[in-house]
Design a protein around this nucleic acid. Structure first.
Length: 473
RNA sequence: GCCGCGUUCGUCUAGCGGUUAGGACGCCGCCCUCUCAAGGCGGAGAUCACGGGUUCAAAUCCCGUACGCGGUACCA
């Protein structure tokens, strides 16, 4: 088998969302697996809706995901000559023809079709116009569209994922290839480009499956062999509806901003519709490459489960080398302190975070002293008679020598024993005073990183706060 | 409406004629423990959408129905 040539062909009418990202990923995996070529093509023929910034955003998202392309990006907006050449050839060969109906006339036809309860299909009446008349009317400046002369026979799409589907003869009308203003349309540009680029496998979302017979007809008209089609089940929201804003993040750049790791998103997306079998779930891109095959892609739609993605991201967060993690954290505003201490703080907090945003947020306690204290915690520990105990603890901890978690814990345990308390009776109020919340990494390791000065200052301030709490009755 | 595709625990999935229907997320419990995570162990959770066939045997093959999704442009 010759090396595959595949392409990812987004339209820059929106940012790269997870559905598109998964399509890109599968194409990339397939290309890499087969030692083939991955081509990036920007389908910006819709001039009204395409925006340059969105192309840049898509390119950025691709790079972020680690999906490098071998050729392109090609812009369809710059390939007009190719399409017009192809249209002229089809026209000359009688495989396409000019149709001179105006939009208003077409509307009228649609309306009458709707009135009689049938679906509108262009009836191909302009096929009857002779070549001479067609040329003459075109030359005289009359507006026309170019339509494909779709043969009256069943069209078979043999899909690697969805299986064989047959579209009966007459299911398609002679659809428009080129608009009356000269702009080539989507189906046409796709096929012309796929032929020109020697695409062997078309891997894309199942929303394109109904388009596939059009493409089959077009490939034939163009005299090109059919590529293998593989239509991927759609990615839906958790409620089974089309993915939209109210399902939370859907754009790749949103996941980046929320502190997800590209490796986690790649892994998660890969599993939406594909499974390597043998209960394999966590995989690097390289592992996916070696395991990937079209045969193991399922046909059904899947739902995007943020919970599982978050879990997976947490898993990846545990494995990132410390230095790399510090790099990754940079865009997320972490307190500026000693790099060595930062590394230790990260070691303490990473297992408690599921995203970089979580982690950066957790790291904030190493910056400013806490201003707010957890309400439930204050209800439980916020009593004036707790103040002396916290004060004593502050003194004992300050005196601990060396200032290590082992010595600190020993000091705290000794104090607890003296007072006939459990360690938790001491640790929890201390944790609250030090961090403002009741959940944190092991207290004494935290204190060790926080340092003697900060610990003492916060504990003493907290004791003062406790002393001012009105006594309960 | 018409055309097409899909349907295994709540979710992602394994399964490709004979399994106690497996794994993962989430959920619950236990262990660890100064709290919260992480980790370890265990549990609940699927009459394989439904109804007919084919077969000694069906989640697996065939046909209907229901539901879901997609398409139905001089959008992509």
């Amino acid at each position: 088998m010759t090396a595959p040539r595949v392409r990812f062909a987004p339209s820059p009418t929106g940012s790269l969302h997870v559905g598109g990202a998964r399509t890109a990923l599968y194409n990339w995996l397939f290309a890499r697996r087969g030692g083939g070529t991955f081509i990036l093509r920007i389908e910006d023929t819709d001039v009204e809706r395409s925006r340059r910034e969105l192309t840049d955003q898509i390119l950025h998202a691709m790079r972020w995901l680690g999906l490098d392309w071998d050729e392109g990006p090609f812009f369809q907006s710059e390939r007009g000559a190719l399409y017009h050449e192809a249209a002229d050839r089809l026209l000359a060969e009688g495989k396409a023809y000019r149709a001179f109906e105006t939009p208003d006339e077409l509307d009228a036809m649609k309306k009458s079709a709707a009135a009689s309860g049938s679906a509108f299909r262009y009836d191909g009446r302009a096929r009857a116009i002779s070549k001479e008349e067609s040329d003459r009317r075109a030359a005289s400046g009359e507006k026309f569209v170019v339509r494909l002369n779709v043969p009256d026979e069943p069209l078979v799409v043999d899909d690697a994922v969805q299986g064989r589907t047959e579209f009966p003869a007459g299911a398609l009308d002679d659809f428009v290839l080129v608009r009356s203003d000269g702009h080539p349309l989507y189906h046409f540009t796709v096929c012309v480009d796929d032929v020109a680029m020697g695409i062997t496998h078309v891997i894309r979302g199942a929303d394109h499956l109904p388009n596939a017979p059009k493409h089959v007809a077009l490939f034939r008209a163009l005299g090109a062999p059919l590529p293998v089609f593989a239509h991927l089940g759609m990615i839906l929201g958790t409620d089974g509806k089309k993915l939209s804003k109210r399902h939370g993040a859907a754009g790749v750049e949103e996941f980046e901003a929320e502190g997800y790791l590209p490796a986690a998103l790649d892994n998660f997306l890969a599993l939406l519709g594909w499974s390597p079998g043998e209960d394999r779930e966590r995989m690097t891109l390289a592992e996916m490459v070696s395991l990937f095959s079209l045969e193991r892609i399922g046909p059904s739609p899947s739902r995007f489960d943020h919970e599982k993605l978050a879990w997976l991201n947490g898993q990846y967060l545990q494995e990132v080398p410390a230095a790399r993690l510090i790099e990754m954290l940079k865009p997320f505003r972490v307190p500026d302190f000693d790099p060595e201490l930062l590394a230790r703080a990260i070691a303490l907090h990473r297992s408690r975070a599921r995203t970089l945003v979580d982690l950066a947020h957790a790291l904030a306690i190493y910056g400013d002293d806490p201003m707010d204290f957890d309400a439930a915690g204050m209800k439980k520990f916020g009593k004036p008679d707790a103040a002396p105990l916290v004060r004593t603890l502050a003194e004992r901890l300050s005196a601990a020598e060396p200032f290590t978690h082992a010595a600190l814990e020993e000091a705290a345990r000794a104090l607890a024993a003296e007072k006939g308390l459990k360690l938790g009776d001491l640790a929890q109020p201390a944790r609250l005073g030090l961090t403002g919340v009741l959940a944190s990494p092991p207290l004494f390791e935290l204190i060790e990183v926080l340092g003697k000065e900060t610990t003492r200052r916060r504990l003493l301030a907290f004791a003062d706060l406790l002393a001012r709490v009105p006594a309960a009755h």
